[in-house]
């Protein structure tokens, strides 16, 4: 992966945002606008998981916890306190960071499969709390009565286009921040821990603290995704915190590819498209999705962007060998 300068990345992000901003001017399709909002929510969620899985080698099977936590914290704060949206959003991120700190402190010491299912257990704890604490959360019905969306700084999130723009900005800013984290010395320390934790610790790095920081950061970005989702549906449902959410996120990053930063984003778009097509054709969504997952996991064994990167690498190698051969012939 070529290392781009921060300025180039800012330019790319700005260009992406400009394209997204102009989209509603060219199309009046509500479905497309909706699609981008959903992609923003899931994209932040999946990319944050890849921060753990791809960069840190920590396969969390409970990342949906933060998605659900974000949606419920934000929804409840808006319903119960009447705070302005930016304040409630910031508080949601703080709540997720604190929860991530506590849960992470218990989980990140554990290895591989233990880590995977203890994170899963914590997610199911949140799910069972949501389902059983009916007076607060509305139980199975989700947060009832909608989430109030008072205007702030002239932004009215009840307006579809305003919500779309806010989601797009959150997505691009979130991705840019995560990209900076991944490219920072911290990000490289994380990769080093993934590849050789023993050696990293010999070099004087506090492995536990680095992993915990990654866990908290990933949780914060995932809860931002959950917040977008709760704004989009104007509610929050127990399904947001259900284990299938984590399973889906794992499939998304595998589908897109864990070795590139934008892989999870590609995976998100592809899975959402697949989702829309399959649910239109058949009621047996699980059956079809399950078979697709098996095809990828047992057949291809790689994500979409992994194939693209490999193709470029192969071409470059081929070009170099060809040039070498030419030189040799001369």
């Amino acid at each position: 992966m070529p290392k781009l300068s921060v300025r180039t990345e800012l330019l790319v992000a700005f260009a992406a945002l400009a394209v997204l901003a102009m989209l509603p001017a060219f199309t009046s399709s509500k479905a497309l606008v909706d699609f981008v909002i959903r992609a923003a929510a899931f994209g932040l969620f999946a990319t944050s998981l890849n921060l753990l899985v791809g960069y840190g080698g920590m396969v969390s099977f409970g990342h949906g916890l933060f998605f659900g936590l974000g949606a419920y914290s934000f929804g409840l704060l808006m319903q119960r306190t009447g705070l302005p949206i930016p304040v409630a959003f910031a508080l949601t991120l703080v709540i997720s960071a604190l929860s991530g700190l506590v849960i992470g402190a218990i989980c990140v010491r554990l290895k591989e499969i233990y880590f995977a299912f203890v994170t899963l257990a914590f997610q199911m704890l949140l799910h069972s709390l949501i389902v059983s604490w009916v007076p607060l959360t509305g139980g199975d019905q989700g947060l009832l009565g909608g989430i109030p969306r008072p205007t702030f700084f002239g932004v009215n999130l009840a307006n579809h286009i305003h919500l779309y723009m806010t989601s797009a900005v959150l997505l691009v800013v979130g991705l840019l921040l995560m990209r900076q984290i991944a490219q920072s010395p911290f990000g490289y320390t994380l990769r080093m821990i993934r590849d050789n934790p023993g050696r990293t610790s010999f070099l004087g790095v506090n492995v536990f603290r680095t992993k915990l920081t990654a866990f908290v950061l990933a949780g914060v970005f995932a809860s931002a995704g959950g917040t977008i989702m709760s704004l989009f549906v104007s509610s929050a449902y127990p399904d947001f915190a259900y284990w299938t959410m984590s399973g889906e996120a794992i499939f998304i990053i595998m589908l897109g590819g864990t070795s590139t930063f934008l892989g999870p984003m590609v995976g998100t778009v592809v899975l959402l498209l697949l989702n829309d097509v399959v649910t239109r054709i058949t009621p047996h969504y699980g059956l079809v999705l399950g078979i697709v997952i098996l095809l990828f996991a047992l057949g291809l064994r790689k994500g979409i962007t992994d194939f693209i990167v490999e193709w470029f690498d192969d071409r470059r190698t081929a070009r170099i060998t060809a040039a070498d051969a030419e030189e040799g012939a001369r």
């Binding site: 899985v53 396969v59 099977f61 591989e112 499969i113 995977a116 399973g247 794992i250 499939f251 595998m254 864990t258 047996h284 969504y285 699980g286 059956l287 999705l289 399950g290 078979i291 697709v292 997952i293 098996l294 990828f296 996991a297 047992l298 064994r301």
Partner: peptide, 29 residues
């Protein structure tokens, strides 16, 4: 199926199992 994902790749093991849970649940329905 499972014998194809031995050897430490937790991500693949999770995915294969996730796929099968979805399939089994739907088959039962």
């Amino acid at each position: 199926f499972i014998s194809r994902v031995y050897g430490g790749n937790v991500l693949m093991q999770l995915l294969v199992c996730y796929g099968f849970i979805l399939i089994f649940d739907d088959v039962v329905r």
